[in-house]
Design a protein around this nucleic acid. Sequence first.
DNA 1: CGGTATCCTCTACGATACTG
DNA 2: CAGTATCGTAGAGGATACCG
Lengths: 125, 125
Amino acid sequence: MDINKKSSVKTDSKGRKKVINACIEPCAIEKGMRLIGGKWKGSILWHLKDAPVRFNDLTRMLGGASKKMVDQRLKELEAENMIIRKVLSERPVAVTYELTEFGRSALGILDTLRQWSEDHSIAIR
Amino acid sequence: MDINKKSSVKTDSKGRKKVINACIEPCAIEKGMRLIGGKWKGSILWHLKDAPVRFNDLTRMLGGASKKMVDQRLKELEAENMIIRKVLSERPVAVTYELTEFGRSALGILDTLRQWSEDHSIAIR
DNA sequence: CGGTATCCTCTACGATACTG
DNA sequence: CAGTATCGTAGAGGATACCG
């Protein structure tokens, strides 16, 4: 679905047309969620906060994510300009991923979320 | 700041750093994401920030979400103690949803996310 | 090591219709 | 109005094997 759609026109059962305004603010929230939300993206970014990390190390850190998933998320994050993939050597193969400035700019949100989540861990479960 | 307190970092023979147990913090992030992440949850909470909202109004506000989805998310949020469902009248049926204190405590994160998302809307696309 | 390629299941989500 | 019920599809995600 097109999330950038600002409004849509619908016709009800009596043939009347209604313009439904999708709101700007929540769209920003949805948009943001698409960048740092999702199953592993926030965690991946968080793991890169201190230093570049290699692919397999990252996969291990996430403990529970398959290579495929990590690979997919990494590609998304790279396409979104949140991380950079760097090939360190060809033989043996060595690759690291690190945050861009943009990626780094999301760390504050993630830290707040982490803090909030920990503070309310009892309420959460 | 000492955030990864539960993690241990080791250095191998080639001077590379390895994080051995780093899944504590990301788990908090994943946990938090499950509460306010997902497709509509953040937006729903955000829409309730000022006042209680009725079911159909909320659905319309989200413009694009089906009743079924809204219903499901609302039930999740209620189970998670983020919102409260209140029956105003039986005939005609009138129900509102409003934030709990816990739900309200998430607004800061959502606002930061919204701000961040808007600020970087160009980078995002 | 850093991925791809397959296959497969499961559920998220949408569309539509119906109900008290 | 505030949901349920039902059906259908797309894709998310796991398991496993393979590759340069």
